[in-house]
Each structure stands twice: as C-alpha cells, then as structure tokens.
Amino acid sequence: MSAYFLQQLLNGLMLGSLYALIAIGFSMIYGIVRLINFAHGDLLMVGAFTTLGLAATGLVPWWAIAFLVLITGALSGIAIERVAIRPMRGAPQVTGFIATLAVSVVIENGGLILLSGQPRTFLFPEIMRSRVTVGPASVAAVDLVIIGSTLLLCVLLLLFVRGTRLGRAMRALADNLLAARLMGIDVDRTIMAAFAIGSAFAAFAGLLWGGRFGQIDPLIGFAPGLKAFVACVIGGVGSIGGAVLGGYLLGLAEVMFVGMLPPVYSGYRDAFVFATLILVLLLMPNGLLGRPEEDRA
C-alpha cells in the first residue's frame, strides 16, 4: 500500500467518522418518530460553540469538556423534541418536517445574533496537533482521536441498544409502535432518550469538527448535516449500522474522489457525493441496510 493511499484512507476514515457520528442521530430519530430532524446538523454547531466557550475559560480540563458537550447536546436534543416534535405527533408528516426546519432556522439565526457570523478559531491542545507516523504515512494525532472516539462511541451505543432494557425498548418502538405500547413501554420517555443520545453524538461531532478544522461559525452545521443526511440515506434510514456504514462510505468516497482524480475535478467533490447517492438509491431504494418501512405519523 502506497503511503499516499494510506494517507487518503486515514483522511477518509476521519471524515467518515464525523459523518457517521451525525448520521447515527438522524437514523435513530427517524427510526422511532419517522421524521427527519432538519435541526440535527445544527447540534454540531451547538457542540462546537460549547467547546469554544468552555475551552476559553481555561479552567475546564479537556476530558470534562468532552463530557459537558455530550450533556449539552443531549439536553438540546430533548429541548428540540419537546418544543417542535412532541406537539406535532399525530399531525401529517410534512408538518413535523417543517417544524424541524423552523427550529433549524431559529438555532442558526439565534447563533448569528448572539455569536455574530464572524468565524472563530479554537484549537485543541498541542499534543493533539502533533504528527503521528502510521506505517509510511503521517497523520495529526487529532485524526486518530476522531477515529478512535467514534469507534468507542459506536461500540458503547451497540452495547446499549442490544444489552439494556431501555435500548431494547428503543428498538421495539422503531420496529412496531402499536406492539411497543401494548408491552407497556413509555413511548414519550423512550423517544426522549433517542433524541438525547443522537443529539449528544452530533454535539460531540461538533467538538471534533471544530478542533480538526480550527474555525467555527453559527452556520457550520449546515453542510455536514446535509452530508450526514446523505450518509444516512445511503446506509438505509432508520438503521444505526447503516448510518455508520453510510458515513464511512461517504467520507472515504469524498476523500478518494479528490485524492485520486486529477486536480481539475476536485471542485466537483460534492457533485460526486450526490451522484453516489443517486446511484445507490437507484440500485437499492431502501439504502444498503434499510428495510421497507410503513408510514407513521
């Protein structure tokens, strides 16, 4: 394996990790309430600015920042569910979509008013920015942290949904709403938990995104949110495994298109991304791991 290819592979895995972290929430939430939460990408911004604010104090150690970002994300997700999703339950699906779109507009513009549109810089500590050699390639330590922490969170999530009572209730609710209610599952509480976990992951992606790319602004969540949505559709909406797979495929494809094709084409990377989406959906309309779903209000 050439050093160049390995380098690109690591870049792709890094980007794919970030997409996967966001896509997981899209999929978990869709699986349970059959609704795409358009405000989901904005949680990336919430996470990034929470990190910036906490890091600026200089008092909070990084492990505590990571923990607090997860908590902030979870609370934001719960708030979004309470304000915009729960009141729309039973309404036509379109109403819910528009409600989440409104939440997204409010968060982004609220951010612009409170934080200004001026991009801000935040940096991870020195050690995260140092270079590490992996075989013939050399990567920033932060890239390995992104890949490693994503894998860790995915494993924890897998253990949670497979092995705990609440996790099983979530899967049951996604599988069959009527039956879940007949088992005595508290639907409201379970939906809230799904929003909390999915949103915590997206906020954590915000911390990583800011630290990796160095600059953040209130609209930072839009593009990654859209890409993660694509990842989630490629993998099969509603499937957590599909979201992770879609995230990595998209990250790798994006980096490989840019890295392997002649430089003239690099401006078209997003065009390639969406062409991949169209191709996958033409061949597999439910995504790679998705199942055909019934409608649910």
Partner: peptide, 14 residues
Amino acid sequence: QLFAGLTVLENLLL
C-alpha cells in the same frame, strides 16, 4: 404485531 426485526428471545423479554 410481533417485533419482526428482533429475535424471539427479545420479543419474549419485551
């Protein structure tokens, strides 16, 4: 109205 995508054991536990 089973949980079709879950195992027999998981259905029973639910």
